[in-house]
Design a protein around this nucleic acid. Structure first.
Lengths: 344, 344
DNA sequence: TTGTATGCGTTATCAT
DNA sequence: ATGATAACGCATACAA
């Protein structure tokens, strides 16, 4: 391994000079600096990130905390897409990323401890149980954090526009003639609360009043639970004409249940999802869903986190709302011309 | 930050004693050791991985090199699944993982340089262009590596059993009565070569001889290219009765093309995929495909890599073959009773 | 059994 | 403009 010392020897200058030259300090003669750089390059010198981190207390390493309830880990398409975008942006700025978890080896450390242990400059937090004390400890620590889809006091958050998107979706369904809209939602999180409130508010504005049994709690990214909820909905005396799912992936459970009942989408029942993952667009019929801009989500999260790391003094926490939009598939029946009169 | 020094002060012993006590050295009095441990815990002491790495030249950090041709990054379901399993096993052994890439910040470093820069103890390499000089540089370096689905001389490799799986699949199709089997394969890699050879060998054993125009080159994980290949196959005077795809994801391109021709799967044409990703099982009809054991692939890769890192002296590189199996879906027509006589 | 001293590779401070 | 030196936190060889 070629160190700064090797370079300094070869150059006939001190290690300090090499360090300064390589890091672009202004108090080094231009010729010397140029010479040092050329020699360093020629020798294949590479700074040792470990030593540098020890000295500067900056690791150029960002932690990623992604733990979803169903343990899908990286195979969770929505979050892997956000993460990928985060990674690209982070690397563009010279930051690497490391996964944070509990139970590293035989040690059991908290997320915060893991971050300290690894000297993470900052952490992005997504898809976790935000009520977990360990998550709260981390977010309230001195380590800069950015959360995705959850707001903590005086912390930066990147949020997809759940209220607006659900509103648009309900209106779309209304325009298609649907009056009996059921909503299977995820577990109780702030995202769920927003979506649910938007659902109810929009329904009210449109003059429809979904009965309690049309609103079912399920779990995000868990097809089985959504399948069960679907079964209950299909058994109702007045069957909904459309079911909204917590997310595209969960819909698969509903799809299987609907098939099992011998029903056809959208002829017999309409469905919509949420997220707009690739999967949703290769199903037949193509799923009508709410596309979340995972690219922007990940990119913004990285950009803001790095800003917080690099300029802690001037950084002001903020909430960034990323808009989404409806992808119109073939899973919603247009009822207008046929039975809308019956419903009105 | 509470350091080893803080602990030593509070304990009234030297830093060396604390270090030894915490790391379970035997030359420390049991009471002292116990006392030191309790104080350390009480003070919330955590070793600083950076300092430790600098001293010991071990980072407990594994690099991950995953760069597929279509830039899908982490959204590549097959590899994200392998990676997730790798991550779980690595963490179980107390290793963190960091992504390796070129172009970190304004620097442009090779993969090898990035690994050195980050002091990675070892690297898992998958889904890259194995002919890339930068990949070869890394694999031939002193850093322990494990490759997935590619063999380098005197290096550990984890391989899914492509030869056997393709053989089984061709025989399955034969048993279903198919004699006109087309194969759209991925770009030229050792995996592709194995699959292709197995395809031809098995065909020969079965006494069928696929014409050249039945074998098309496409690109892994690229629906568009496989779609084009499908179009060419469908335009042939003697249309194949079954098409084998490079992977489940690529099949989507074929699916769209087949739909566009107004053909129905499997009535008008049969199809099979490769990988057995989740997606393949929620399509309708469910895709018949070759399931690769991504769990085992990732787990074995991590286990072997860690073994190579921890016991470099005794470690012997080896090739581990992970078996796969056919998932029987509904995408293959059983021709036996209907037109098999015509074909014979 | 415990402590002292040293150095891993780097950067920062302060002389020169 | 450049260099000597210390220090980051830890582990270890060696002395006590």
């Amino acid at each position: 391994m070629v160190t700064i010392k090797d370079v300094s020897k070869k150059c006939g200058v001190s290690a300090a000079t090499v360090s300064k030259a390589l890091n672009g300090y202004s108090d080094i003669g231009e010729e010397t600096a140029e010479y040092v750089r050329s020699v360093a390059k020629e020798m294949g010198y590479l700074p040792n990130a470990t030593a540098r981190a020890l000295k500067t207390n900056r690791s150029n390493n960002l932690g990623v905390l992604f733990i979803d309830k169903t343990q899908s880990g990286l195979t969770h398409e929505y979050f892997s897409s956000v993460l990928n975008s985060f990674k690209v942006e982070a690397e563009r700025h010279g930051f690497d990323i490391t996964f944070i978890s509990k139970n590293i080896g035989q040690f059991r450390m908290s997320y915060y401890e893991h971050c300290k242990y690894r000297n993470c400059d900052g952490v992005v937090v997504a898809s976790v149980n935000f009520k977990d004390p360990d998550v709260i400890e981390l977010v309230n620590s001195e380590i800069p954090t950015v959360t995705i889809d959850h707001v903590f006091d005086n912390r930066t958050a990147i949020l997809s526009d759940n209220v607006e998107c659900v509103c648009q979706m309900v209106r779309y369904l209304y325009d298609c003639g649907h009056r009996h809209i059921a909503y299977i939602h995820g577990e109780d999180t702030s995202v769920t609360q927003k979506r649910l409130a938007s659902f109810h508010k929009t329904c009210k504005e449109l003059g429809i009043d979904p009965p309690d049994e049309y609103v079912k709690q399920a779990i995000y990214h868990d097809p089985k639970v959504s399948g069960l909820a679907t079964r209950e909905l299909l058994a109702l005396p007045v069957r909904p004409t459309c079911i909204m799912y917590p997310d595209d992936f969960s819909f698969i459970g509903g799809m299987n249940e609907i098939e099992r009942h011998g029903l056809e989408i959208p002829k017999d029942i309409s469905v919509v999802g949420h997220d707009g993952i690739y999967l949703s667009q290769v199903l037949r019929p193509r799923l009508t869903t709410i596309k979340q801009d995972t690219q922007a989500l990940g990119r913004e999260a990285a950009a803001k986190l790095i800003e917080a790391v690099v300029s802690p003094k001037t950084f002001i926490p903020q909430q960034i709302i990323v808009p989404g939009h409806i992808i119109e598939g073939k899973s919603v029946q247009k009822l207008n011309s046929t039975i809308s009169i019956v419903d009105l």
